[in-house]
């Protein structure tokens, strides 16, 4: 007997439907299918996962959470997390923010929209910050800024390069002016790291917008982006509302921003790690094992 034929769930409503024709076909629950927004192909979730959350047909890059990305980029078991317990507070007593934070923590299992730490990439020691699209749209709260600032300060003290993977809806409205100030704070830490002659690589992923674009995302020595990522200061909807006209189709994609001269390269997810390692080597960072 085919394995799939007996896991089909029984549903009362279905009893009136003649299933005889379908009974011999394998059944796959809907949750296992994902529709690619770029090419409309229905993709099997397991295939997608194996393919690093990239559409197997057209190469569209889906979002990836922070932990998945850390696994993708770092050597096995090498990631040592910083400031794991640092969590946001509702500093302004903003309505419903406590609940929003609690929901985000529950949904993601993370305390904030960025995970920071030290790791090895092909044996090369780096400080890595990875933002999480699932935590209030990767928005920058006070603690997001604080963790990134600490990561840069740590890297400066220890002469380490920094790799930051961005994904963000911008500054976090619920923390008002305090979140805006994180743009200045993180930029200050990036500048000190830069003045110390250390390498900073940014990897922009879909979407990187607002206050994150207007601060550390655009401050890398080398700026990479994943294909088809939205990279913007103001998002397309805001611009359409301001100027009251439709935007061209590929406006604000990684490829568009590359053409305009604001990023160095568009790199496929499967090539990210080796590209970063290559750049680290080009800046004379090498594996500790060689010493």
């Amino acid at each position: 007997m085919d394995f799939f034929t007996f896991i089909k769930p029984k549903n009362e409503l279905e009893s009136t439907v003649d299933n005889s024709k379908q009974n011999n076909r394998p059944f796959v629950p809907d949750a296992m299918w994902i529709k690619c927004p770029a090419c409309n192909t229905m993709l099997l979730a397991t295939d997608m996962e194996e393919n690093l959350n990239v559409c197997t047909k057209c190469g569209h890059h889906f979002k990836m959470n922070a932990r998945e990305r850390i696994t993708l980029l770092t050597d096995k078991n090498s990631f040592k997390e910083f400031d794991k317990e640092l969590e946001s507070k509702n500093i302004l007593d903003f309505p419903n923010y406590d609940k929003k934070l609690a929901d985000a923590k529950l949904k993601t299992g993370e305390m904030e929209s960025v995970v920071t730490g030290r790791a090895l990439m092909e044996g090369i020691d780096v400080v890595l910050c990875v933002m999480n699209p699932e935590f209030i749209m990767g928005s920058m709260g006070t603690v997001t800024g604080e963790k990134i600032t600490r990561a840069f300060e740590y890297a400066t003290e220890n002469n380490l390069p920094v790799v930051v993977c961005t994904v963000s809806g911008g500054a976090r409205m619920q923390e008002g002016i305090m979140s805006l100030m994180q743009m200045a704070k993180t930029s200050g830490a990036v500048k000190r790291h830069s003045d110390a002659g250390l390498l900073y690589i940014t990897v922009l992923t879909d979407p990187t917008t607002g206050g994150v674009t207007a601060s550390f995302a655009m401050e890398g020595d080398i700026i990479l982006s994943e294909p088809n990522a939205l990279i913007a200061f103001a998002g397309p909807r805001v611009i359409e509302q301001t100027i009251r006209q439709k935007l061209p189709k590929d406006f604000q994609t990684a490829e568009f921003v590359l053409e305009k001269g604001f990023i160095d390269a568009v790199v496929k997810r499967e090539d990210l790690k080796k590209t970063i390692v290559k750049l680290l080597s080009l800046h004379n960072y090498s594996s500790k094992e060689g010493e």
Partner: peptide
């Protein structure tokens, strides 16, 4: 917020000032 501003790197311009 407009097409020209985005094309000429509004985010980058602000980021550079902050730094």
């Amino acid at each position: 917020c407009g097409i020209g501003a985005e094309e000429r790197g509004q985010g980058q311009a602000i980021a550079e000032n902050l730094m």
